[in-house]
């Protein structure tokens, strides 16, 4: 475990806590894409299949449980909570996210490290996570007003995988045989998808103005 990996995990944890805080305290999911939350629940469900078979460390297992629990509870809140679901804007959150799942599954069936069920599902989760933010970014561009918590959520979610890239560089130079092209390429693509959001997020922070993405 290196500092980049720990910073990445803490940033990822902070992103889910910010979102849970927003939804649980102000009982609103305005500006939050349910489609992205469903994709992330699927990402964790397919990535952490080994949570019961392979014990890595207490930290690893606890973090997996937190990410699984938070992503599924956020989906539950937006879909079923009597107050929160009223603030969900389903007319704006129209990204056809199954069009993301199908290519990711097909790609995982052809490009993977080993052709086993767990490995293919794990690879699928990597590809899916790379594009899971798209419904949320599309929604942000449609809803003019981006509230601070939603902006912070997206920023932290994008930053965590960026920190993981530094972790991979560090491990590449310090650990022999540490080569995982699939993980690296998916992680770089995922971070690049946030590039324009990061740009507008920093601009709004620098000029101390409300975050607005161009239509």
């Amino acid at each position: 475990m290196n500092i980049f990996r720990l910073a990445g995990d803490m940033t990822h944890l902070a992103s889910v806590l910010v979102l849970l805080l927003k939804i649980h305290t102000i009982k609103s999911c305005a500006g939050v894409s349910l489609k992205t939350q469903e994709l992330y629940a699927l990402v964790f469900a397919t990535r952490y299949l080994d949570i019961v078979t392979d014990f890595i460390s207490v930290y690893n297992t606890v973090m997996k449980l937190i990410f699984l629990g938070s992503s599924f509870s956020i989906v539950w809140y937006i879909r079923h909570h009597r107050v929160v679901r009223r603030s969900y804007d389903k007319d704006q959150d129209t990204f056809r996210h199954y069009l993301l799942m199908i290519p990711c599954m097909l790609l995982a069936l052809f490009v993977h490290e080993k052709f086993t069920f767990k490995e293919v599902m794990w690879t699928f989760s990597l590809y899916l996570e790379a594009v899971a933010i798209l419904p949320q970014l599309v929604l942000l561009q449609r809803t003019r007003n981006i509230d601070n918590l939603t902006g912070q959520y997206v920023f932290l979610l994008g930053a965590y995988r960026g920190l993981y890239i530094f972790n991979w560089i560090y491990r590449y130079f310090t650990e022999p045989h540490f080569v995982h092209w699939i993980t690296w390429i998916a992680g770089v693509v995922q971070t690049l998808l946030y590039a324009d959001f990061f740009y507008y997020y920093f601009e709004s922070w620098k000029n101390n103005v409300r975050l607005q993405l161009p239509a």
Partner: peptide
């Protein structure tokens, strides 16, 4: 343990 190593991230 190598296999574990490659799956020790979140």
């Amino acid at each position: 343990c190598y296999q574990k190593n490659s799956k020790d991230e979140l």
